[in-house]
Design a protein around this nucleic acid. Structure first.
Length: 150
RNA sequence: GGGGGAGCGGAUGGUCGCGGCCGCCUUCGGGUGGUCGAGGAAAGUCCGGGCUCCAAAGAGCAGGAGGGUCGCUAACCGCGACCGGGUGAAAGCCCAGGGAAAGUGCCACAGAGAACAGACCGCCGAUGGCCGUGGCGCCUUGUGCGUCGCGGGACAGGUAAGGGUGAAACGGUGGGGUAAGAGCCCACCGCCGGACCGGGUGACCGGCCGGGCACGGCAAACCCCCUCCGGAGCAAGCCCAAGCAGACGGUUGCCUUUACGGGCACGGCGUGGCUCGCGUCGCACUCCGUCGGGUAGGGUGCAGGAGGCCGACGGGCCCCUCGUGGUGAGAUUCGCCGCCACGAAGUGGAAUGACCAUCACCGCAGGGCACGUCUCCGCGGUACAGAACCCGGCUUACGCUCCCCCCACC
RNA sequence: GGGGGUGUAGCCCAAUCGGUAGAGGCAAGCGACUUAAAAUCGCUCCAGUGUGGGUUCGAGUCCCACCACCCCUA
């Protein structure tokens, strides 16, 4: 991860995606969301549990997607996900680093989105500074037993 | 206008990206070059299989599925051809298309009658009564008897042709016949039977002979006959890592053997409905069973082909299908055909893309204008839809193109 | 992905064996009682059975296809 600063490309590999159900639960459980007419965005500071050695560089932000069945059939859901991924990829140097961002498009607006619209919404919703972490409201706590054990 | 079949599923270029495999480089983070990367339905999950596990996949019962014939197939509720039936003017389309004289059950309402049926209206009333009347005969001259007629009514009775009811009324049409009618008789059609003749692998078809007809419908009602089906499913299963918490039950019998062991019985469990049979355990505590607790990470399964051969089990060779490129004959070109080379999605918070330009196709209507659609400019659109172990089908959704057939008009 | 189930008035839910069209309750409306309301009583209204075919004389019921929703599954 030493080449983060000089790496100016627009790559979008697996290190920039949220991949585990546990990670999704943590990000949604932080319950810091904001939305506009198109998107709902959940934000969390990126946890660095795995890295034991001290890191002086903040890791890049990661993207996660939730596109429900109300958006439409599979090709339409794929289209929405690809648009959001592309917007994140092109904006990755303008957005703040060290965040986990989970994007959930609104079903009613997801019918006919364009790339520029998604870019606008994403930039506006993510670039504002984070509010203080609030208490978790167990709204998305599907596995509360595991949470209580830990 | 109607009907049948086949094909395609936008093209090219640019910029920025994603995933697999191979080669090279690497400071092991990655870089770089090449190559491949959604569908005809990938869909619904409606059938059939492969594969995996249940030790093996056995028998019977139950349950389920299929049902004209002959082929194709690994198999099928699939496909093809044919047979029979229905429908349409035709091309064509549709058919769960075995059995209703093995049995059980059902056929509401209406209607006279609904399953070895029935007589409401109507028709008739030949025959026998009844009433009226005419002729003849008898003697006991009467409101007489007998006999032969005519007429009437419709009492007994005959009838099932017609009306009417119904989804369905115990063959149809025509003629004869009759009091009126009726397969009562006859002709043709239909139906039934035949161990018959001819054709066909067969379903069946054609004929011949016999029978006046006896046999309503429903089996997507129970059922009978024939055929097929053990159960679960890639979240199957196998390996690694991580993690948790254990508790309870089982401590047999007989025979045989010096003993190991074997046999029978009994009990638990498994064989995902039951029985048999089979397997397994029964002094093992490292075994069997019941209940409870933990994990949701990684790898593999995992990829042209349900073709073949060989293998020292790592794989190799050949064949087939499709794609791309090259080449040969022919040809104006393309395609078809032959040969050679290379290739054959494999994700998994889930890749196969995003944006732009030009072209193609379709539509809109404003301007130009020959007033119709040519094209220049403008605007909008380009269907249905996304692999999740794989394959063969079915069904459903959907844009366009082409070919063929039938009918009508010119 | 795989396996299974359900669908009848606005809501909950009945309908022997298929029988000519659907019971009940809540809700709604009207009336009575009441000063008014609640409760109660009476009356009324509301379905063509998720959709489309087929079998049958006749289908909510039997069969097939499709649609929507729900549940289970390492």
């Amino acid at each position: 991860m030493k080449s983060t600063v000089e790496q100016r490309g627009y790559r979008f590999g697996p290190e920039r995606r949220v991949r585990k159900k546990r990670e999704y639960d943590e990000i949604l459980g932080a319950n810091r969301s904001r939305s506009d007419g198109r998107l709902i965005v959940f934000l969390a500071e990126r946890s660095i549990a795995g890295e034991a050695e001290t890191e002086r560089v903040t890791p890049p932000s990661r993207l996660g997607l939730i596109v429900g069945r109300k958006v439409g059939h599979a090709p339409r859901r794929n289209r929405v996900k690809r648009l959001v991924r592309e917007a994140f990829r092109l904006l990755q140097h303008e957005l703040p680093a060290g965040l986990d961002i989970v994007v959930m498009p609104r079903p009613e607006a997801a019918k006919d989105l364009t790339l520029t619209e998604v870019q606008e919404s994403l930039k506006r919703l993510v670039q504002r500074p984070l509010p203080a972490p609030r208490a978790r409201k167990k709204k998305y706590g599907r596995n509360k037993s595991s949470k209580n054990r830990s």
